[in-house]
């Protein structure tokens, strides 16, 4: 099964059981089709997305595995961050539906042909998709939530550590039993 891949594609050997392959957005469906028919990599086990914001691209990773679950093949596909649609794999792999739904919510990537791109884990989210790197969690929290005041007997940790250290120091300097 490796020989077919070696012959037709520029295969990157990451480990003896993990390979990677770069494809373009246009090649993706065709390549997937070829690979699933000619090799035993016929299952999608994960769909990943990495935000390379400095290079203005998302890198999608289609983690394929074979029926024996012994080898993994990573199909990597870079897409521009602003032109964010991909063809859906829902027809090829039923499990892709929910994975794409998650990426749609977290990165704002559209998947053409996936009918289920409604809310996944977030409800009524209208900010920029939260897993994009420009989304600032702290700023969002500061803008949307109030910090609850602590208990009345709440102590400042840094102060307390300082105090304890000082106390320990003075205890050392004046040895007991003197």
């Amino acid at each position: 099964m490796m020989s077919y891949l070696e012959e037709h594609y520029e295969l990157i050997h990451k480990t003896p059981r993990l390979f990677a392959l770069h494809v373009t957005r246009e090649q993706l469906l065709d390549t997937l089709h070829q690979i699933t028919t000619h090799t035993s990599f016929d299952t999608l086990s994960q769909l990943t997305c990495t935000d390379w914001i400095e290079e203005e691209r998302f890198e999608l990773g289609y983690m394929l595995t074979n029926a024996l679950r012994s080898h993994n093949l990573m199909l990597k596909c870079s897409i521009a961050r602003d032109k964010v649609t991909m063809p859906s794999l829902a027809l090829l792999f039923a499990q892709a539906e929910v994975m794409e739904r998650e990426l749609h919510e977290m990165f704002g990537i559209g998947f053409e042909g996936n009918e289920t791109l409604y809310d996944f884990a977030l409800e009524g989210w209208c900010d920029i998709p939260p897993m994009r790197r420009e989304f600032d969690t702290l700023a969002y929290v500061n803008a949307h939530y109030d910090f609850r005041e602590g208990r009345e007997d709440n102590l400042d940790v840094k102060e307390e550590i300082k105090k304890r250290k000082a106390a320990a120091k003075s205890a050392k300097e004046t040895p007991s039993g003197a």
Partner: peptide, 15 residues
């Protein structure tokens, strides 16, 4: 840069 987790539940609970 990125760590993405996929447990068995994602597929099992949905599809």
């Amino acid at each position: 840069r990125r760590m993405q987790v996929k447990g068995p539940s994602l597929i099992h609970a949905f599809s």
